[in-house]
């Protein structure tokens, strides 16, 4: 039971970590909390559905869906955020809210207000058994995919020049430009990565929920935001830590809270978040940022 709940927590935390990372990457570079991140997920979800309906094999459909998320993120930056470059954090935030609402309306009117079923392949419902211990295929996939994505991102950020430049840009964007590295390349890459992460998270999310609806992205982006803030806004290791922490807390409360208190679960989680922020106002692993006069 306990081992099982740990797996559940890691599986959920992994998805939150991917989403929070996506938010954090963009925030660390352009100071934007992209609330339309959830709609990137929704879009990937619909792309998966469409690809499956068109008869693409499942792996191809997933590839198409994730790429759609990534490209949509880049397009979103070009169309909505680039004209706002250099604007205040507040105006950027409001722009992202506007983009998010607009996309929701487009999904509702263009597709349907009602959830659309996404039939997952049969092998996703099943379980491995080790003795009397069973672990579901669903959570296993979540854990493996999140782990691989986190490792791949880490390798990219450590090894590649662009990745290194992104870490540097999070600290001091101007100086990165002084090195001759184009700002637009860094920003586009940041959005591309965040879109990839949103697309991957969407796949895991849809695999667990078997449907997509226009408001699908709302809850996860909220959770990701909480995770990113708890971890230290703009800090990538912080986002991952925050994501896993949130997953653990949610599963723990879900598993142990008596039914009568269950409705207050979200309130309890948020109180926990506030407590963390009181003790560590900059989050668990604060972002490094150049101190400038």
């Amino acid at each position: 039971m306990i081992a099982q709940q740990i797996i559940n927590a890691v599986s959920l935390g992994g998805v939150y970590a991917l989403l929070a990372l996506g938010l954090a990457i963009v925030f660390s570079i352009v100071g934007l909390i992209n609330f339309a991140h959830g709609e990137l997920m929704t879009l990937s979800g619909y792309a998966l559905l469409a690809s499956l309906v068109l008869g693409f094999p499942f792996p191809v459909a997933v590839l198409v869906a994730v790429s759609c998320g990534a490209l949509a993120a880049v397009a979103m930056e070009r169309i909505a955020f680039r004209p706002m470059r250099g604007a205040s954090v507040t105006s950027l935030l409001l722009t992202s809210f506007a983009v998010s609402s607009l996309l929701k309306v487009v999904f509702q009117n263009g597709i349907s207000a009602r959830p659309q079923a996404v039939a997952m392949p049969g092998w996703m419902t099943g379980a491995f058994s080790f003795g009397d211990f069973t672990i579901g295929v669903g959570p296993s996939i979540s854990i493996v995919v999140s782990a691989l994505a986190l490792i791949a991102l880490e390798v990219f950020l450590r090894r590649s020049v662009t990745g290194t430049a992104m870490r540097a840009a999070a600290e001091d964007f101007d100086v990165v430009r002084l090195m001759g590295i184009p700002a637009s390349r860094i920003i586009a890459t940041a959005f591309l990565l965040s879109g990839l992460l949103a697309g991957l998270a969407a796949m895991l999310w849809v695999a667990q929920r078997a449907s997509v609806d226009p408001l699908m992205g709302f809850t996860p982006v909220l959770k990701a935001f909480i995770a990113a803030v708890v971890g230290g806004l703009g800090s990538l290791p912080g986002a991952v830590a925050g994501g896993f922490l949130l997953g653990v807390i949610e599963v723990l409360l879900q598993a142990t809270l008596p039914g009568a208190i269950a409705p207050y679960r979200d309130a309890i989680v948020l109180s926990g978040v506030i407590a963390v922020l009181l003790v560590r106002p900059q989050g668990l692993i604060p972002a490094v940022r150049a101190q400038r006069s």
């Binding site: 959830p115 996703m124 099943g126 379980a127 069973t134 669903g138 959570p139 667990q208 929920r209 449907s211």
Partner: peptide
Amino acid sequence: YEPDFPAFIQQLRGAG
């Protein structure tokens, strides 16, 4: 019901 029911049953069956 939607979208909770699909999520519940997908995860239930996914857990074996």
